[in-house]
Design a protein around this nucleic acid. Sequence first.
DNA 1: CGTTTACCTGTCCAAAAGTACAATGTGCAC
DNA 2: GTGCACATTGTACTTTTGGACAGGTAAACG
Lengths: 209, 209
Amino acid sequence: MEHLFITPAGKLRDRWQQAFPRARAAVQVADIGEATSGPRGIVWLDIAALAPAERSAEVHAATAFGWPVVVMAATPGESEAFQLLNQGAVGYCHLKAAPEQLREIALVVEHGGFWMPPELMQRFLALSTRVVPAEAPVDPELNELTSRELMVAEQVAHGASNREIAAALDITERTVKAHLSSIFEKLGVRDRVQLALAMNNIPTYTTVN
Amino acid sequence: MEHLFITPAGKLRDRWQQAFPRARAAVQVADIGEATSGPRGIVWLDIAALAPAERSAEVHAATAFGWPVVVMAATPGESEAFQLLNQGAVGYCHLKAAPEQLREIALVVEHGGFWMPPELMQRFLALSTRVVPAEAPVDPELNELTSRELMVAEQVAHGASNREIAAALDITERTVKAHLSSIFEKLGVRDRVQLALAMNNIPTYTTVN
DNA sequence: CGTTTACCTGTCCAAAAGTACAATGTGCAC
DNA sequence: GTGCACATTGTACTTTTGGACAGGTAAACG
């Protein structure tokens, strides 16, 4: 198991070295070259010194590498956590996590798990029950939607804009619109407002049917 | 590391035995007695044959035991997943997961990780990017609306377009917009979709950025 | 009377939403 | 293989929405 630390300084911190004596460091993911054929490893991404915009790009680049990616932030925040994890990271921890902690995280992610600080995890789960729509009381008409359409519809049901949906599903706004047009037709609604209401089982008075 | 399988049948399935030769089985969590002082272990909860109502109770009982709880369902579904995980479980997998899979999951949860099938994880992360701060119960704020604004807001809450609202209230579209701008500001919502949801007491999630 | 507040309207503009028409690629069933 | 559903994206277009700036009226209040 290789451990690759991507950090602006380009050198390992003591903590990292302690956790994984054979760890390597690099400034950019690109500096690694192709190693996908070699043994499995973990990419540790230090985003403390990166601008928000760069973070997404780095995470994308890192995940493209093919190894599980753990993001390390100076001040872990929930919104950032979800955003980065949504981009393919499977771990999110404090930049100053202790060596033992790092090893724990490594064990988790190398076995297909998912790690974030307990308090974030709790928050994450608390949100989940509200974010994820109950699946029982859905209209039979929803069955007509394809899986992708359903994802879009659920986002609209929570008030998301096309841009936000595109970002969340990692597709273009154009595609979101395409899905929406199809959804409107299938569900017999006129626009996103009526869709949002319909998804929440609220009748619309102008709706025909 | 102990492995405790809670299953209606009360006996281990081959798969489980294969994964953890020293695993034990029980019909109910209560049957185990106090073992919190002993070595750490994992509770595997088979909820395939349980009614939805019983599931919550079982998960609660299991988590109360103090060990990480992994729920095994016959047909993993997303809403169920997040519901159960929110009640304290740290894993959610298929009842028929292979022994190797079970061992992977064990490694993950015993190190503070979190496991669910990749497709569910992806699905959830896509939804949760729109994280957060669920705001504001609108009710108290509705008092701040003038009578006219309230009329407009109610129309939007039913899916009406600006043109329809204008016709209904016998004013111009321009005036409708003016009222809407004022409403958005007073209620702290971004657009008519979020207004419609807020008027129906449905929380909306806004991306950070 | 002056001030405030609600209500109404206009023009101009920018962004978002939505549609029309067209195309590519993928996976799956027959 | 062929056909089909699905997902994706593009260009170009119209419509809707929402904000900025700039007013008008009328009623209420000190």
